[in-house]
Write a protein that binds this DNA or RNA. Structure first.
Lengths: 351, 351
DNA sequence: GTGAAAGCGCTAACAA
DNA sequence: TTGTTAGCGCTTTCAC
């Protein structure tokens, strides 16, 4: 059997109250008592049962994180960010990956209803706003990553997608590309919509008409990026001057198709992604850097603040930043120095 | 306030015992009682408190996973594997990334002593065997990923590193490479040691002397791969016929150096990695595929078996498999068809 | 078949 | 300063 509070009491002769006080650093105990209790605690190798504590205190010191079923390296980074902040505040992290929308709701419900965690962090899910609002009723603080909630007090940590998408579009335009294709993310996803909108706006501002045919639907996955470009080319479409994918996974998919068909990047077409995942760096893909760790860390902090300080409606927006690499722009000759001006994150493996 | 068992009792008129029986599917209740109780449960939106249950049953339905502070995409995949098996068995997953060896022990101790989980999965840690054996005393089942424990009953799920490393080495030799450099993983790590040992053995069997100078120390990280090759070249070393890195991250690091210095892969030197992470596929790096998801899924299954069936000393060993891509061997002309024979996993983006 | 009651291991009034 | 005691919300003997 394992050691409980009572064992410590028996051995010290003190009551549970006193021992508990010592353990919780109450000032209402003699130095001597404290010493004696701690000695026995040490001796017996006693450790308070977290479970019992939970039941009494109605705290779990646990943050639950639910991720969508996407595979991209993006989530690892976010997870690490959450982990870092979480453990810094002496919280634990419970992780679950959803395996589809139904599963997502089941997961979320289970966590909330069983009160397995003090707060819930939801990432980039496509769940409708009113469903999310409904969750608020259960009283567990929820922090949304990647989606500010318009008319609600739900906390969120999101991205300034527009500035990044705008910078990328401007970069392409500045390098003389006009005929730019855009591979979208799943419709209805906040980030995807913002990125597309900013692309459109920027094009319009520059009096550069957007060819509707060149808006290719994607799903934020690598295969969907492949398909988008392949379908266009197979349908007899000309290779555009540039391709702007709403995330790196799709950019990588498109790059695969380009290489397989003998096209050179950036000579035949420029390519830009979004996120700045590890593979994008290795492949030399110009992209918009997203501070993934910070996204995670910030959301964990927000979640904890909601728990400990009962703060509500906290909304953060993190900046994004263009990172110029070989996949785009270098053929103008002076793009390299310019790249430095845009960002110092450009260490990469030339392709 | 939230709904408890008592609320259901009050509303139904039954005792806690009966309601609890209904909830746990006991056969000792009338169909009618069951119906009435469930109706009220539904009506009130009652959900049993997991915490209270835990305290009573001394089960947490939680698997704790501790990962090392490495960044590689490897872990994401393993984590997904664990998640899949975990949720399939109605368990939850608690994740923690260590931030160094001291931290690692602290994390592990906390989980074990507080009994936050029913079982613990440890991944690829460099913790000494006797420390691990010491942990067994606490009674929490531990499953090791990537390291079979020689003289102990600790469960493990590990890799057949040798077969994979052997296949890779043979592949390089068959393509006429003799002068092969090997970038090692951190000394003392099971996988790293096995891979190096198999490389050495295979070379010897083929009467191909291993040049000690060409064994470059690495740490399983991308920068360490860069450094290993850069140091050699900067020291005036000739580019070897081939480079075999003990993992993909380091292979990618070396590839970066090669490209920066204008070398072509595989023309100037062949390159082989280990793990088959996503980036390796995109970069067309020949590598040894490691079934990362299975590694995770299997370890979760083993962990759960230990909990539910009190099985002990389960040891699994998963196969690895050579995947031939562009970074190696294709310059012989007929390597492509051969690649098919070796593995069908070779879809990749030609570099 | 159902209920009363005793805990699981802890914390925190309240009393002394 | 320390002890007594009543729970937290559930499961499970043991009676009935």
């Amino acid at each position: 059997m394992h050691v409980t509070l009572k064992d410590v009491c028996k051995k010290t002769g003190f009551s549970t109250a006193t021992v508990s006080r010592v353990l919780n650093g109450s000032p209402l105990v003699t130095e001597d008592t404290k010493r004696r209790v701690l000695a026995v605690v040490e001796d017996l190798g006693y450790q308070p049962s977290h479970t019992a504590r939970m039941l009494k205190l109605k705290r779990t010191d646990m943050l639950a994180v639910v991720f969508p079923p996407l595979d991209v390296g993006f989530f690892t980074e976010v997870l690490r960010g959450i982990d870092a902040a979480t453990s810094e505040h002496n919280y634990h992290m419970m992780t679950a990956f959803s395996h589809g929308p139904e599963d997502e709701r089941k997961l979320i419900n289970r966590v909330i209803r069983e009160r397995r965690a003090d707060a819930l962090i939801l990432m980039n899910l496509t769940l409708p706003e009113n469903y999310l609002r409904g969750l608020a009723r259960y009283g567990m603080p929820i922090t949304l990553i990647d989606r500010p909630m318009a008319r609600s007090k739900m906390a969120s940590v999101s991205l300034d997608n527009r500035t990044g998408a705008r910078a990328a579009t401007v970069h392409l335009l500045d390098h003389g590309h006009r005929n730019i294709a855009f591979i979208t993310g799943p419709k209805g996803t906040y980030d995807a919509d913002e990125r597309l909108a900013a692309f459109r706006e920027t094009m319009q501002e520059r009096n550069c008409p957007v060819d509707r045919q060149l808006i290719w639907p994607g799903r934020f996955t690598e295969p969907s990026g492949r398909e988008a470009l392949a379908r266009w080319l197979d349908g007899g479409g000309d290779l555009p001057d540039a391709i702007f994918a709403a995330n790196d996974a799709m950019a990588i998919g498109a790059l695969g198709v380009l290489r397989e068909r003998g096209y050179d990047v950036p000579r035949d077409t420029a390519l830009v992604g979004f996120d700045d995942i590890e593979s994008a760096r290795y492949l030399g893909i110009t992209t918009v850097h997203v501070p993934m760790r910070e996204l995670g860390a910030k959301s964990a902090q927000v979640a904890i603040q909601q728990v400990t300080r009962h703060q509500t409606g906290i909304a953060h927006r993190l900046p994004t930043e263009l990172v110029v690499r070989a996949s785009c722009g270098t053929h103008t000759g002076n793009a390299a120095p310019r790249a430095q001006a845009v960002s110092t994150r450009s260490r990469n493996i030339p392709t």
